[in-house]
Structures are given as C-alpha cells and as structure tokens.
Design a protein around this nucleic acid. Structure first.
Lengths: 112, 112
DNA sequence: CTCCTCTATCGTATATCGACGATGAACACT
DNA sequence: AGTGTTCATCGTCGATATACGATAGAGGAG
C-alpha cells in the first residue's frame, strides 16, 4: 500500500518575509535557522518537502531510517524554527515548507 | 591600546571547492556546516572574519561577550568544520575565512 | 634567563540533542 | 460503541553543546 496522496494542504499565503536589519538579530536568526538544519535528517526532510508540495508524516517516516517518534521530533524542530508548517488533514498531518523562511535563510547565508 | 593589526596571514590558496553530487553526502555536509553556524557567536565571528582580512583571537574576544576560553572553543568548531583557518603569527594566532568552504555552504543552501 | 602576553586545553557543571519504545489523543470507518 | 490508523508526547538514556575558571605552553621583551 503506497500512500503518497497529494493532499492539497499548505495553501499559498506568504506575504513577505522580513529580514532583520540589525546585525545581532540577523546573527541570532541565522543561528536559529542553521541549527534547525544542523542534522542530516532534517536537511533531507526539508528537501523532500521542497521537492513535493506537502508531505504526510508517514511518507517521511518510510523514507527516513528513523523511528516515527524521532521523525516527529525533527519535524517539531523544523516547525519551531519556522521553516515548515503542519496542517491536520483528517487523521493525518500534512507538512509543507514555509517558503518565506527558506527565502530568509538563503538571503542571510548569501549575505555572509 | 587598540591592537587591530592587519597581519598579512591567511594567504590566497583555494584552488577549488568540490560540492558533493550525491544527495546524502550533500545533506551531511550541509548539516555539518549549518551546525557550525548554529550559534550566534560563531555567526558573528565568521562575519567578522569575512569583513576584515584575518583576525587575532584577542580582537574577537574583545568584541564578544564571552570568556576567552569559550571563544577559543567556538573557533575550534568553526575550524573543524573547515570554515576558517588559523595560522600562528608569533605569540598570536591569526584566523581567517576559508572562502571555498563558505562558497560551498552558500551553494548548498541556494540549492535547497 | 626571567617575566609577560597570548592562546589552547583541561576539568567541571548544566543544558540540550538524538534516539528509542510506550503511551495517548484525534479521527475515520464499520 | 468499538476498532484501527496516524501522529504527538512522555520518559529515559547516552552523547554532545555551552559556558566558565584554572592551567599549560609557546613566544617575545627586558
């Protein structure tokens, strides 16, 4: 039973991502975002979410060589960093990228 | 006594920074580099090193609100991630950016 | 040779990470 | 109601991160 359903969660939204002008704030934000990606599994998850539009947790667990609870914790970290968003879709939860946050991260890194 | 001496350490070098083609390896490398920047102090230090060509440890310690030993540890992490390089300059040590590593990091992030 | 400066390392304490199994809560389906 | 699926949370464990003071070691200055 492959269960890759393209549930149309994660709508557009995203008006504008503010990049901090203050350097100290930029450092803290960049550090927080970098910390969220300081683990290969989280990088892989983010990449997966960027690639396809929204992912069910089960799909991620199938791909990652980790326990379901561990994946859930990684998702929690990505979410609390603001890089992804999760929406309940019936019994499942659909995660998707927060494009604005990724854009801010790219901008901060590029400005290094 | 301000001691900002532009000791001409940190020569050119840098032939070519190889970016891993394999996605898993890219994930691990990105995670390692992101981890190195997962702390505001390290981001600030890297920025400082990018801005001016090479920095004496003492200068960094003066700017950062941290103990000298703590700064030294952060430098060690940045160095073991390959983002900076340190050269002994008499009694001092001059740290400088490893431009190739920063370029790889930017490329990996941009490719997200 | 004897100080003095500069930096790295050691030792320590606290906090967070990363992983897992087990449990709990929400939902669909019968 | 009862059952099964899906995901988050809890509790736990070892490993790592972060911070500091204290110490060691290498180099100049006198």
């Amino acid at each position: 039973m492959s269960k890759s359903q393209q549930t149309a969660c994660c709508p557009p939204a995203e008006p504008d991502p503010p990049v901090p002008a203050n350097e100290d704030e930029a450092n803290e934000l960049l550090a927080r975002l970098a910390k969220a990606l300081a683990h290969p599994a989280r990088v892989a998850i983010l990449r997966m979410l960027v690639r396809q539009q929204g992912c069910i947790v089960g799909d991620i667990v199938e791909v990652q060589p980790l326990a379901q609870s561990t994946v859930s914790q990684h998702l929690k970290q990505l979410k609390s960093a603001g890089l992804i968003r999760g929406e309940v879709d019936g019994p499942r939860v659909c995660y998707c990228v927060e494009p604005g946050a990724v854009a801010v991260f790219k901008a901060l890194v590029e400005a290094l």
